[in-house]
Design a protein around this nucleic acid. Structure first.
Length: 552
RNA sequence: GCCCCCGUAGCUCAGCUGGAAAGAGCAACUGCCUUCUAAGCAGUGGGCCGCAGGUUCGAGUCCUGCCGGGGGUACCA
């Protein structure tokens, strides 16, 4: 049991004893005060209760502290300010926490919260009509990191990429390739503006020409062009993702939903249950019965389904595959479409509580202070590969992770290049490299850095601050996983790096406080702390899919 | 018109279910390297938290209305 939950439980007991009811929806909150004089943990419980009970918060706080049974790890309980209760945690508790950190090593921060939960994370899901762009990059990195966080909290994760290879976009792609192919054969073609303009289309056409010569000159249908384009583009997409340390377990395509009859099944079921109807030659879903403002078309009068039908069928399939949790990561353009999908699933009788949708905002590409509208079709984009070439994998991942997904992301490529060596990711990596360096030096100079260090020798303020900071890691991981918020991890790592740099800097100021100090037991204890800091930084960076270099 | 996201330091952004004196990085300025990586540390300046009301003991955080940016609202995905 963590310290917070121990104190929270004890507070709840105290509240009962004092005759206060804690409402169901009110969790006992324990936060780290900004000021050290306010102790290590603080609760606003009395203030929170005050508004319900209509009583003086200080009075409530006083009675709570009176009824509070001692918690072993807590050294001091103080009433402060308008009614805060501040807890000072004992040194020994921190030291035993450090002990646990050291013995856990690479497993430190992992938890069993999602034990036995089969979880699917769907992300990227870009149709194979062109290279991945910076816009896709955000979702790719976000999704992969969320998958990593869920794995770290015990979930059994399947990473899945869904794509549509049955629609109009792909037909246009095939025609684009075919036209470029004909051009290569010397024909004069009129290349329509709404076709894919990118150079990669020409490259694919050339590839086909080299393989097939002019044998496809009079091909009746463009199936071959489509299949070739799809496979070539997908190879590229996979390569790009691989560069970012992202791999998928499943690529699921829309066509298979048609071929397996799952689309028709959904259509039939919806009709049977009375949630769909014919109007003006189209099939409509009664989304208005599920809180939507109007009904939506699922099959056009042309007989072609809208995107909603396969999306519903796909999600039904996810549920049927028995996932306990389904996380969908979508761009802001899906904000209005996923409620339709959930409505369809509800209509089919499924419990959609298992589905969690994370909507992230778009990347706005800036160039010289001006907004550039990206479009794959008009070949107006910066590819993810170009970004990785310029900035490197670590900077790219960090750049996309280090902000909340609900926030718009302004991206100035020129600035990204320029600032790449000033990126905070280097600050974190440097702390890790610095530790590795000092550990190596210790080995070279024959210091004992084995187990069994006497951690009670760690008494300096910077040492204690670092220890306290390190011990926040597991909780940070849990919270980040719960909230699907990777930026909490990067923020934590930056803070940890600061604490470490401060700690090691002490040795520059005062030789007595060097890690490799003359007192061997003290050096050993400090080396153990260095090792612990390294473990936390390395674990955190791994969680973000970012390298932890041993030297820089 | 209606719905969703955003508006916090010069720039990019944090700010945990409302809580104690608004934070970080970068940029600017000032100190600190014969010794564990100065890719660092310490410090200074810089904020009507978009605007106006409201709820509350207490609002950057919640509610309402505006303003500005983005996305949606389609028998496009």
């Amino acid at each position: 049991m963590g310290l917070r939950s121990m104190i929270a439980a004890s507070l709840k007991k105290a509240a009962q004893k004092a005759g206060y009811d804690i409402p169901e929806n009110l969790a006992v909150e324990l936060t780290e005060p900004k000021q050290k004089s306010h102790g290590d943990l603080s609760t606003n419980l009395a203030l929170a209760l005050a508004s319900n009970l209509k009583k003086n918060p200080r009075e409530i706080a006083h009675r709570l502290t009176q009824s509070l049974e001692p918690v072993e790890a807590v050294e001091k309980v103080e009433l402060a300010g308008p009614g805060f209760i501040n807890f000072t945690v004992s040194r020994s508790w921190y030291l035993s926490g450090l002990e646990r950190l050291i013995s856990a090593g690479g497993a430190y921060g992992r938890s069993t919260w999602g034990k036995n939960s089969r979880t699917q994370v769907e992300f990227v899901s870009a149709n194979p009509t062109g290279p991945l762009t910076i816009g896709h990059g955000r979702q790719a990195v976000l999704g992969d990191t969320i998958a990593r966080m869920l794995e770290a909290t015990g979930h059994e994760v399947t990473r899945e990429y869904y794509f549509n290879n049955a629609g109009r976009q792909m037909r246009v792609l095939a025609r684009s390739v075919r036209l470029r192919y004909l051009e290569l054969l010397g024909e004069t073609v009129d290349f329509p503006e709404d076709h894919y303009q990118g150079q990669y289309i020409v490259d694919i056409a050339r590839h086909i020409f080299e393989e097939k010569g002019d044998s496809l000159k009079d091909a009746e249908n463009s199936d071959f062009f489509q299949e070739s384009a799809e496979s070539i583009i997908f190879d590229e997409i996979r390569k790009t993702l691989k560069r970012l340390n992202i791999t998928f377990d499943v690529f699921y395509n829309e066509k298979s939903l048609y071929e397996s009859g799952k689309i028709d099944e959904v259509l039939t079921l919806l009709k049977q249950k009375g949630y769909s109807y014919q109007k003006e030659g189209a099939v409509w879903l009664k989304t208005s019965e599920f809180g939507q403002d109007q009904d939506r078309v699922i099959v056009k009068s042309t007989g072609e389904p809208t995107y909603r039908l396969p999306d519903i069928a796909y999600h039904r399939d996810k549920l049927e595959r028995g996932f306990d949790r389904i996380v969908d990561i979508f761009g802001a353009d899906h904000v209005a479409t996923y409620p339709d999908v959930l409505a369809g699933l509800t209509a089919l009788g499924y419990d959609t509580d298992r589905i969690r949708v994370l909507i992230h905002q778009f990347v706005t590409l800036m160039e010289g202070g001006e907004v550039v509208k990206m479009s794959t079709r008009r070949a107006n984009y910066v590819t993810l590969d170009e970004l990785i070439d310029e900035a490197g994998v670590d900077v790219t991942r960090y750049f996309f992770l280090n902000r909340t997904s609900s926030s718009h992301l302004n991206f100035d490529l020129a600035l990204a290049k320029k600032q790449s060596d000033e990126n905070p990711v280097y600050y974190v990596q440097y702390a890790h490299a610095r530790i590795c360096s000092i550990l190596k030096k210790a080995r070279d100079q024959g210091f004992d850095s084995g187990g069994g260090a006497d951690l009670s020798l760690l008494t300096g303020e910077e040492e204690m601050d670092l220890i306290k900071g390190l011990l926040e890691y597991p909780e940070t991981v849990s919270r980040a996983a719960r909230e699907l918020a990777p930026h909490l991890i990067s923020a934590f790592l930056e803070k940890t790096a600061t604490l470490y740099h401060r700690f090691q800097h002490e040795g520059k100021v005062d030789p007595e406080r060097r890690v490799l100090t003359e007192n061997p037991s003290l050096a050993k204890a400090r080396l153990a702390l260095c090792g612990a800091a390294r473990v936390v930084l390395a674990n955190g960076l791994a969680l973000l899919g970012i390298g932890a270099p041993e030297r820089m």
